[in-house]
Simulated scan of single mutants.
Amino acid sequence: MPANASNSLTRRDFLRSRISAPVPEFRPPWTDDATVQSRCTGCGDCVDACPQNILELDENRHVRVSLRGAECTFCKACADACDASVFDTEQTPPWPVVAEISGTCLLAAGIACQLCTDICEPQALRLDPDVRPMGRIRLETASCTGCGACLAPCPNTAITLSDRRMKGLAA
């Protein structure tokens, strides 16, 4: 068996539709891909400054967000540490990233769960009890900051983040 066999798609996974989509790469708040590509020097100062440890350098030594169970608090420590003018802290909102809820939400299967609503500080995720049998989580996109706090508590990974710029829906 080849050393990289565990990374390849098996016939069984393909037939069972267990194909995982690639995880989208997000640049930090107050930046965009073009700015990071052209201005980021790869020094890592922003990565070291992030108190949440959600920033890392990609294979090209450009900064990217990797939430790994944490959230962005928009503290601006990354921007303050950057001498390369990669960050524009006047940009409002900090980034056009919002949460999306898939059909695999436990409420859709009739299982009571509201973990995401409990953790959502701006209350962008709310339970709509009018949808039967258990209700449904509604997302108020205008309130969602895209911080990622709702990702880790979701037991069914039904929540993902989406960058509106990647869909042609400029913020």
Rank of each mutant, 00 (worst) to 15 (best):
N53I: 00
N53C: 00
N53R: 06
N53V: 00
I54F: 09
L55A: 09
E56T: 12
E56W: 12
E56M: 14
E56H: 12
L57C: 07
L57V: 10
L57R: 06
D58T: 10
D58H: 05
D58N: 15
E59T: 08
E59K: 06
E59H: 04
E59F: 02
R61K: 14
H62Q: 15
H62N: 13
V63Q: 02
V65R: 15
V65D: 08
S66V: 10
S66W: 05
L67D: 03
L67R: 14
R68G: 00
G69D: 01
G69L: 08
A70T: 02
A70S: 10
E71T: 06
C72M: 04
T73W: 04
F74P: 03
F74N: 01
C75T: 01
K76A: 02
A77G: 00
A77H: 14
C78T: 03
C78I: 06
A79T: 14
A79W: 15
A79E: 03
A81W: 07
D83Q: 03
A84C: 03
A84M: 02
S85F: 12
V86Q: 04
V86W: 12
F87Q: 02
F87D: 00
F87T: 04
F87K: 12
D88L: 04
D88R: 08
D88G: 00
D88K: 07
T89K: 08
E90S: 14
Q91P: 05
Q91L: 15
Q91Y: 07
Q91H: 13
Q91S: 11
Q91F: 09
T92C: 00
T92Q: 04
T92N: 01
T92R: 04
T92W: 00
P93F: 06
P93N: 03
P94A: 12
P94Y: 07
P94G: 09
W95Y: 13
P96N: 10
P96D: 07
P96W: 09
V97Y: 03
V98S: 06
A99E: 11
A99R: 13
E100Q: 12
I101Y: 10
I101F: 11
S102D: 10
S102W: 08
G103V: 15
T104Q: 15
